[in-house]
Design a protein around this nucleic acid. Structure first.
Lengths: 238, 238
DNA sequence: TTGATCTTTATGTATAGACATATTAGAACG
DNA sequence: CGTTCTAATATGTCTATACATAAAGATCAA
């Protein structure tokens, strides 16, 4: 177990979440009032409150004034998907990573692109096509649009040496993102770029990124079907 | 904006996360000490501490004793993937939902199943194969193993009327889950069940579920490629 | 120079008390 | 009987204070 004695509010939190996760306290069950826990643990209300507030923030319990705190009913499975840098993914496989720029052009967003990317039509972008290799094998095809209004520096970057993903992380602050994940059959371009037959299953991850409500970039990553899986974990605590 | 005046610690939290998200405070930047914020906001240290502790818990800042608090460098994009009940997904498309049990047997976990599912070998399970329909079209193929040691009630449930997903939510407490998402070519069984040609691209979502460290269930959901996409959102704060 | 020890400092945890606020059960009233 | 008001109560927020603890820096000794 824990050699280092956990803090008191952490112990309270662990005790309660343990009872919920084990099913001893089913959804809807009213957990003891703060003043009851105060007595049970011989501590002040602030300490109990810290534990319960945290449980409420993570969604394990729900608090109602004047009424008490209740175990929540799990609704939808909310899983946390960690989306890593491609270099990191490749190196985690123990393979040498190589990046290669295929095309780069500065132009306006086309009609159809606007539709798939969610970027407004006619804005100026840098359009990139890149390949990521794991060893000799192509690992991922990247098609990207970068909004020059949001990231003017992108105009003077060639992206010959550095991949746009890591470059953007250094040039744009934290941002909101939306990911769409789906399976498609490889079209001619993807088949050629990934060295797979046309029609083979591919995993596509599309990401739209905003910073301060302004669209920053749209990227479509295409992985050869069997070569890549996304993993998402859900654990109510820690 | 907010009509209801936010609490003070929430305002402090919003101010700081705003400065981080806008890029005003880049990764690595040391944010003011607690005693400085105490003066700036004219409040007690506990209030500032509550805001900073929460920012640290969500990973936006990192706290170092004797040194201060620092804006963290975004490592990987962590996106929240909402995985809904299949009925909900289908009805969100405006289509009538239908569930159908295909096979149900009680048996031990096989060698190969143990490998893919992560369930220990030789434990007793209920093995199910089910279909979910959106209108007339097959929408999703579900293959599931339920650990009878963890969920003894599953032995006496036929699953003819209710799908195992919703049934389990009512019979198992809060749990941890791991999702794996990938694209594969449809094998013969999937092609038949989904009404698509062999080799067509399919999206596979596999979920392993535990409750209190005991494996509960393994499920593989196979969607016809174009018919389904997963969406994950990332917003660092609220 | 190196290593051990002390000091300082910012965060980590906890307390006891205070007042605010939402909500509900019950009382009073029409 | 339904409605309105009131009092009770659990949570929400905040303060002022206290001591613990980890770690950076300074000091001193080998």
């Amino acid at each position: 177990m824990n050699v280092r004695p956990a803090s008191l509010h952490q112990r309270i939190l662990d005790d309660i979440s343990g009872r919920i996760l084990s099913g001893a306290w089913p959804p809807g069950h009213r957990i003891p009032f703060e003043h009851e826990l105060t007595e049970e643990y011989g501590c002040s209300r602030m300490t109990v409150n810290k534990a319960l507030s945290e449980l409420a923030r993570t969604g394990l319990i729900e608090r109602r004034r004047r009424s008490g705190s209740y175990v929540t009913r799990p609704r939808s499975q909310a899983a946390v998907l960690e989306i890593h840098d491609i270099r990191t993914e490749v190196e985690a496989l123990g393979l040498p990573y190589r990046y290669q720029l295929v095309t780069r052009e500065k132009r306006a967003v086309s009609d159809t692109e606007s539709e798939t990317s969610g970027l407004p039509e006619d804005i100026k972008v840098v359009a990139l096509e890149c390949q990521h290799f794991a060893g000799k094998q192509p690992f991922c095809l990247e098609e990207r649009l970068i909004n020059l209004a949001a990231v003017p520096d992108a105009a003077s970057e060639t992206f010959a040496e550095i991949a746009p993903g890591p470059w953007l992380i250094g040039h744009v602050p934290w941002s909101a993102a939306e990911h769409t994940i789906r399976a498609v059959a490889a079209d001619a371009r993807a088949a050629k770029a990934l060295g797979i037959p046309r029609g083979a299953a591919c995993l596509i991850v599309e990401r739209r990124t905003w910073s301060a409500d302004e669209p920053v970039t749209f990227v479509r990553l295409t992985y050869a079907g069997e070569s890549h899986a996304l993993v998402a974990r859900f654990a109510p605590q820690r």
